[in-house]
Design a protein around this nucleic acid. Structure first.
Lengths: 133, 133
DNA sequence: CGGAATCCTTGTAGATACTG
DNA sequence: CAGTATCTACAAGGATTCCG
């Protein structure tokens, strides 16, 4: 990778400094965001998350939670009861992230129709297999 | 399933009712956001993007741009000059999205250190091979 | 210059079964 | 209940090459 700015104003991020990418790497995961949303309402149990996210596998739930925990976005509290009980809760930074994500959601709602229409017309113009065999 | 994998989710993946997921499906792509950021400053050429995003392959740039174009987030303008010149520009909705993404960036910057420290301590506590010597 | 087609290596995720 | 472990797949993404 050429680190040199080849004349062009590389407005963009010098690799190391790009926080966007860092966030995205964290949000990119198919499930992270949905878990954050699901856990936004307060402490939630493993099984509740499993049902709440709906579609996630037990494995991915575990893995994603581990990553979120590692990044300090959720806390994991084990209650030493006889039937084990583990609760996950968002940390403060994660709650702030959640708020930010809400504006993303808002944007999505506002532009959902626009995007759908754009796709429709695009797909119409670029008919994939208009040439039948 | 289709015959071959042409890369990237070319086909809409059963977007559920959840707008969060719709957004994420669009943002999830490793590159979409970075391209939007890079193009936020005005019309930009293919090659400029290629250098600006830094790390992206030609293939992924093409594919991601196609998807963005399909969703009506960027416009593609071909100038019929002798050395071909194609410019990409964000549409209004994409510019709004960009603003939203800025708060994500902001969050990332504010919490970068926190996350890094969280990771460090997590990795420290969960030492992989703490086996007795 | 901008892009399409091809090939190949991974990461991400699903299903399943087993444990404390 | 709350995980782990393993095996497998498919699709994302990289590298390369060819073409208008």
């Amino acid at each position: 990778m050429s680190q040199r700015n080849t004349g062009v104003t590389s407005q963009v991020v010098n690799a190391e400094a790009c926080p966007v990418k860092e966030v995205l790497d964290r949000v990119t995961g198919k499930w992270s965001v949905q878990i954050i949303v699901a856990a936004a309402h307060g402490p939630i149990r493993f099984t509740e998350l499993e049902r709440g996210v709906e579609g996630i596998s037990r494995r991915m739930l575990t893995l994603t939670l581990r990553n979120l925990e590692r990044d300090g976005l959720v806390t994991r509290t084990v209650h030493p009861t006889v039937p084990p009980k583990v609760e996950y809760e968002l940390t403060e930074p994660a709650r702030e992230l959640h708020c930010t994500l809400l504006s993303l959601t808002e944007w999505a709602e506002r532009n959902r129709v626009y995007i759908a229409e754009s796709r429709a017309s695009y797909d119409d113009e670029h008919r994939p297999e208009l040439v039948d065999v």
